[in-house]
Write a protein that binds this DNA or RNA. Sequence first.
DNA 1: GCGGAAATAGCACATGCGTGTTAGTTAAGC
DNA 2: GCTTAACTAACACGCATGTGCTATTTCCGC
Lengths: 230, 230
Amino acid sequence: MRVPRLVDHDQRRAELGAAAIRVILREGLGGVTVRGVAAEAGWSTGSLRHYFRNQHELQSYVVEATTDALRRRVLPRVRRPRTASSAVEGVASILEEMLPLDAGRREEYALWSAIVEWERQHPSEGGSVTWNEQRALHRQAVALLRGHEPAQDLDRAALPHPDPEVELWAALLHTFVDGLAAQIVNTPGQMPAGTAGRLLRALLRAVPPAVPPVVPPVVPPAVPPARPDR
Amino acid sequence: MRVPRLVDHDQRRAELGAAAIRVILREGLGGVTVRGVAAEAGWSTGSLRHYFRNQHELQSYVVEATTDALRRRVLPRVRRPRTASSAVEGVASILEEMLPLDAGRREEYALWSAIVEWERQHPSEGGSVTWNEQRALHRQAVALLRGHEPAQDLDRAALPHPDPEVELWAALLHTFVDGLAAQIVNTPGQMPAGTAGRLLRALLRAVPPAVPPVVPPVVPPAVPPARPDR
DNA sequence: GCGGAAATAGCACATGCGTGTTAGTTAAGC
DNA sequence: GCTTAACTAACACGCATGTGCTATTTCCGC
């Protein structure tokens, strides 16, 4: 069999994905057109369409690739060990990594927003992946605040916490941080970085402390009791 | 002087505005095109362009008109007297009027979102009008929760409250409700109406009550500031 | 009546989009 | 060197958009 020139499709697609990300940052997900991305990458539309049959396939790939890229960028940052003067300060500095407080994080937030928009318009069964990951992060944050042992791996943090109070405050905190990020970008005049940080810390201080360790945080048998939430 | 046929421009523009609102609900603010709105209203583009010179003028008018219409629809509802079993319940039922919990309020939220998007892309000096109004509403809510006299008129509520704790919790609550609304529409699977209501009430219960004017901030050793029940 | 300004309807042009098709180019295997 | 499949580039079609321009209709004041 004769094998003509071969190119690495995955690598090509990654190259296109990088160009598409630049387009998203400049014009939003709606600007991710076949022509636009091809021009950004310096290719012709015909070439691009050897790797993506249509616009949906292109956007779908870009959303997936962007999600992965953001994960790889953000996760190490929130897992970075830090010297904090208090639990509140430690958790606040973690959560601030998620807020669009400077140019770099504003870019990341714009990408997250584009992904959320995509997920809203193309709902997948099993719920939003990014939502579940964010919830796990806030669950960890609240557990830390209340003095629980942090979950070892990320999969563990994806499960509901045995302490229902952790679940409740994780939901409250998650929702609040979502709103905070939205206000920072939508009404930056009314929500400058300093105000955002103060509000975040104020809410963290409002998280009630765990009751004294009558029962240490031993993971109980696999079945958590039915919780009112969710 | 000869006066030809005269039509009420304001009334025409209002008619166009109503058609544009229908278009926004169907296709978003991006769908507000000269052709689209004209077709929705049953006119030709040439006619429409006697009242709006270009697309920007059309969208600008629509945003303004929609803001006014929403104000007129929502304000009486949040001011409706209610019989509540508690302060938390009373405030919760007010704030729920702002959440996209049913078809009607989802429509209103979609319109609010379109306005916020417009304001973000076309920032005006003096900050966002809608943001300030929302903040005033939450300020009132927190004041109510803490047992203050409610402000008489709306202009009064637009000013910062003398109690700094009211200002702080108004900001926290405002941000939280923003996030709640966003999650309800963006990830409805993870944030159904019942959960949203429970989270809202949980946060309202976390608002610290006003200290009785007996002993303000005498901090007993090792006891964190006043906390809600439970 | 009727002149004429306002109002209306419609067309034309340039632009940008997704997508289908087609001709040219490249390079591995024979 | 030749063949052939993959790759590249470009064009064409249909559609939608904003906007400028031009007939056509309407109706008040004379």
